[in-house]
Computed example of a mutant assay.
Amino acid sequence: MKRFHRLAALLAATAIALLPTTASADVAYPDPLPLTGQQIIHDPTVHQLSDGQYVAYSTGGIIGARLSTNLRDWTDAGNAFTAPPSWWYDYNATADPWAPDLSYRDGRYWLYYAVSSWGTNHSAIGVATSPSGLPGTWTDHGPAFTSETTDSWNAIDPALVRADGELWMAFGSYWTGIRMVRLDPKTGKAIPGATVTHLATRPDAPYAVEGASILHHGRYYYLFASYDACCAGVNSTYKIRVGRSTSVTGPYADSTGTPMLEGGGDLFLSSHGRYTGPGGESTFHTHGRTWLAYHYYDATDNGTPKLGLNALSWTRDGWPAPL
């Protein structure tokens, strides 16, 4: 979810062997790759597992799972967890998890996710591990980081990144925007007393920026974030903006030099044609390429949330662009 949704969403994706062949409705925004099978999704995180399969986890009442052998054809694979951990009910009456983030390190897969309730920052980011990354194999380790109503940030929408031998987690939704905290790589949880760094916000309330994802490429860290309103089907105004920094903790700025703490951020992907309100993004690497995974609301299918996948290209001056 990104702050205000509780959608029953599932996952899907597309093929690395192919680039878009359909005509784009807007030359600035190429269409995502065509998919088959189960395509419904929200807040996707995609990863290639050690057995060669691709797994996608997403928001939607459960942390739903989808599997593919080729990034094009996707099948339903159930739920990441066989049962909700009991501590989830402290943050959500129906134990509804949001916005997962999947990564691999130290011989294990790590799954981060948020648990919160509509319109509050009484929130938690949980962490679980698995030897295979497959649904049904996760061991939950409880909250990795929390926020309370007295805080000026919201502990949802986790996004992990490693930098200079340290482990960091970007997070945040509304409540002054995107933040970052350092994690203990052994426990995967926030270091007690660690500084919470501010990465991006809007100059005006309600500070509608959330769903961070950080990508390291060349000498820069790139901060992608979702701006404006999700979760309203064809009325969604979500869009993805990006800035960069030579340091993982910022300051991040767009191509004009405007800091993301002052409302900056280059427009990276916006509504075009049937693809309404793209956001909830994450990145992953496979077969020598970097891909952006996100959801959009299909204007030809009553605003159903679906998975978009676009490979990334890079401009001469080092900015990402969707293919």
Rank of each mutant, 00 (worst) to 15 (best):
Y221G: 01
K186Q: 14
T201L: 08
T176V: 03
R182Q: 15
P185T: 00
A208C: 03
A194E: 10
K189L: 06
Y207F: 15
H216N: 04
R202P: 00
Y207Q: 10
Y221C: 02
T201Q: 14
R219S: 15
L215M: 04
S213E: 13
S213D: 15
G211I: 08
T197H: 13
D184R: 01
I214D: 01
I214P: 03
G193M: 12
P185L: 04
I214Y: 01
A205N: 10
L183P: 02
L199F: 15
L183W: 03
G218L: 06
G193P: 09
A190Q: 02
L215A: 07
A212T: 11
Y221K: 03
K186E: 14
Y220M: 09
M180Y: 03
A194Q: 11
V209F: 03
R219E: 15
G211W: 00
T201I: 07
T176S: 08
T197Y: 12
D184M: 05
I191T: 05
Y220Q: 07
L215D: 01
H216V: 02
A205Y: 07
K189I: 05
R202A: 08
H216S: 05
R219P: 14
G177A: 13
T187L: 04
T197R: 05
H198I: 09
V209D: 07
T197A: 11
A194K: 08
M180T: 10
M180N: 08
K186C: 04
L183F: 02
L183D: 07
G193H: 11
G177W: 14
R219K: 15
T176L: 07
R179Y: 12
R179A: 15
K189G: 06
H217I: 08
G218E: 08
A200G: 03
T201G: 12
E210I: 15
P185D: 02
V181H: 06
A200L: 04
A208D: 09
